[in-house]
Simulated assay, not measured.
Amino acid sequence: MTGTSQQAGVEVSSDSVAPERSILKRKLAAYVSLTKPRIIELLLVTTLPTMFLAAKGLFSPWLALGVLVGGSLSAASANVFNCYIDRDIDKVMRRTKNRPLVTGEVTPRESLILAWVLGIASTALLWAVANPLTAALSVGAILLYVVLYTLILKRRTDQNIVWGGVAGCMPVLIGWASVTNSLSWEPLILFLVIFLWTPAHYWPLSVKYVEDYEKADVPMLSVTMGEGAVALQSVIYAWATVIASLLLIPIAPMGWIYTIAAVGSGLWFIGEAHRLYYDVVKDNGEAKPMRVFHLSITYLTLVFLGVGLDPIFFFPLY
């Protein structure tokens, strides 16, 4: 039995409306998928705490909302541009073969329009709710990810994620500038923390998908040097990350909350990196690079939780 509804004397079949809604829903889901929401979540984890540190406590909730929305749109724009440029290699990689540009749910033209709209909207919003410096830093982040990483480095060097990771460091500068309309040593130290953290975070993931990168001819470190090099570099970068995080204590200055978070989670991070290296060198079949990958996310979250809470509940070290 077919249902109908009557509007202005015209019968509309409910059977025809349902498929249209389904198509629209799938299209919207495909657009959202192109923006890589999980990556955006991690960027926001570093932005908001930095704003609390810049304000030395609480600040306007409207500024927070505007910057988080604007930052999300900016990151989404960069991610869509990335999907557009990498659609040729996405189709040969198991991890990315179901992305909307590969399956045809979104056309290349549609993705380009979406990327530009998101980029323009983010710039306008950040300019309006914060200041021109914040908007300019956001544009810089998009260019770094799209041009420096995706177009220049990704397919040319196994150091791609090191220097290409600069784009992922920009949210701390954006967050700080939105509150102070300036930059100083504190956000630069946080920038350095994320810069050094990125290789230790991403290279273990590349081990899991090494066959994908080989097939796509992308020279990740796991492809060019192997799992041993990834494990060693993870140890080096984990140590460098934790040391950089401790620089914030005398510069900000930070109190007991941040110090405990940075030292405690840092020792955990370093320990897991050493454990991975030991297991790889011993070749005992116990090496789990994805454990370091997931732990690195927890580590960064705990550090920035300390960054955000410390200025609100400040307990000085001395």
Rank of each mutant, 00 (worst) to 15 (best):
K36R: 13
A287F: 10
A76Y: 06
S296I: 12
T2L: 02
Y209S: 06
L53P: 12
R38C: 01
A216V: 14
A54L: 13
V307L: 08
A229I: 07
G164V: 14
V235D: 04
V69K: 02
L248N: 07
G3D: 13
Q7M: 11
V166W: 07
F195M: 08
G168E: 13
I312K: 00
A240N: 02
L126M: 15
T259P: 09
G266T: 12
G271P: 07
S14W: 15
H201T: 09
L53C: 13
P316L: 04
V106H: 00
W185P: 08
L309W: 10
Q7D: 10
V117R: 00
G9W: 10
F59I: 09
W176F: 10
L68Y: 01
I23M: 09
G255K: 04
K208Y: 14
A121T: 14
S111P: 08
N79I: 15
L267T: 09
R155C: 08
S206R: 01
I297V: 15
L205H: 05
S234W: 04
T46G: 03
A136W: 13
Y149H: 08
V92M: 03
T298A: 11
N98M: 12
W203Q: 09
T96N: 01
A240K: 00
L196T: 06
I260F: 14
I297R: 00
A216R: 03
S60P: 06
L53S: 14
V146L: 00
W268A: 13
L192G: 09
C169Y: 11
